[in-house]
Computed example of a mutant assay.
Amino acid sequence: MTQSIRWLQDEIADRMLQKLDIVKMQVKDVLVIPDFSGRHAHFLAKRFPGIRFHSAPESDLSAWERLKLKVSRLWSSGFKVAPTVSLASYQKTGRLDLPNNSVDLVFSVLLIQDLPDPKHFLQECWRVLKEGGLLTLSYLGPDTAKELYMAGDTPQQIALKKLANPWDMHDMGDALLGERFSDPVMDMEFLKLDYESDAVLLADAKALKMIESGIESPFFGDKLPKKLTLEVVYGHAWVIGKHLAKAEDHVAYIDLNQIQRKTRSDSA
């Protein structure tokens, strides 16, 4: 996301936090991915006193913006130091820079639509979450900016792009269950954006990565739509029974560490 769409990240984060109000859990370590300047950190720190932020800043932030974000997260957490997580490194290597079982909460705002392999992201979230941890997420669904794809509405100069991840909420619910998350809850809503200016609509469409970024012309007559629809998908799911047997192809595999040998002293 770019600065022009920052308001949307803030708005969706607020809605995610409202859904989190009914959740009862103890949180000491949270991964915010991607992290950005907004109100969410203040509300998370208020909701979970003593929280420690593992921040994964957006990849396009400047060095100065990253420093400000780091200082802000330290302040919000009462100066509890936590390592910064590199989103760019994850996108390159497919691995989050965190140990296994290291966070209680993963808070992901509008990221998954840009990932070519969201299932792998879920696997990494499962890996870094502790037993009893929670993944809460939001992303743009496949009907986002559908007005741009209507035949005859879009000028030939605009190169349209599809979302890297076209999952709807049912796809995500199935994937969460497939990756061993428990009790997934999915929700979806449509947000309608109205525009008086072609330039503003194009700026938002670029920020949403729905069109190529090289478009400069500010005026297309009546060919551009005057509104965009955003399909916003929300979901959360728990990590429960993380160390129990895992079933594959109807065969249960048990971690050797779960097997306890009975010794003479045990039976004495």
Score class of each variant (00 low, 15 high):
L191Y: 06
T144C: 02
V200W: 03
D222Q: 09
S213M: 06
A175I: 09
L202F: 09
A175H: 08
Q156L: 13
Y139I: 04
D198H: 12
V200N: 02
N165S: 07
E147V: 02
L177S: 08
L208C: 05
D204F: 10
L122V: 00
W126D: 03
A164M: 07
K161Y: 11
A205R: 04
P225I: 11
L191E: 13
E189I: 04
Q156R: 15
L160T: 09
D222P: 02
N165C: 09
G132H: 04
E179R: 04
A159D: 13
L148G: 07
M186L: 14
L176E: 10
A203W: 07
K206G: 05
A199H: 09
L135I: 00
H170Q: 15
V233C: 13
A151M: 14
N165Y: 08
F181V: 00
G214Y: 14
Y149F: 15
D168R: 07
R127D: 03
A164C: 08
A203K: 11
D183Y: 14
A205Y: 08
K161M: 14
L135W: 04
P184K: 05
A175M: 08
G152Q: 01
P142W: 01
V185Y: 12
E212N: 13
V185I: 12
E131H: 03
L191P: 05
T144Y: 08
Y234E: 02
K223Q: 00
D204V: 10
G133M: 01
A203N: 12
V128K: 10
V128Q: 07
S197R: 15
S197G: 08
M150P: 00
A145S: 11
F121N: 02
G152P: 08
D194G: 15
D187M: 08
L137P: 00
I211N: 09
G152K: 06
L191T: 12
D171Q: 06
G221I: 08
M172Y: 11
S182G: 09
I158L: 14
H170R: 13
P142D: 06
H170Y: 15
L135G: 03
S217L: 06
Y139H: 12
D204L: 05
A207Y: 05
L176D: 09
L163E: 13
L176P: 02
D143P: 00
Y234G: 05
Y149M: 03
D168E: 10
P218G: 03
T144N: 01
K227N: 14
D168V: 06
L148E: 06
A159S: 15
M172K: 07
Q123W: 00
H170D: 15
K161S: 11
L230F: 08
V128Y: 11
G214E: 13
A205N: 03
D174A: 14
L230S: 07
F220G: 06
T136N: 02
D171T: 03
L201R: 10
M210Q: 11
Q156W: 11
D187E: 13
D187R: 12
W167D: 07
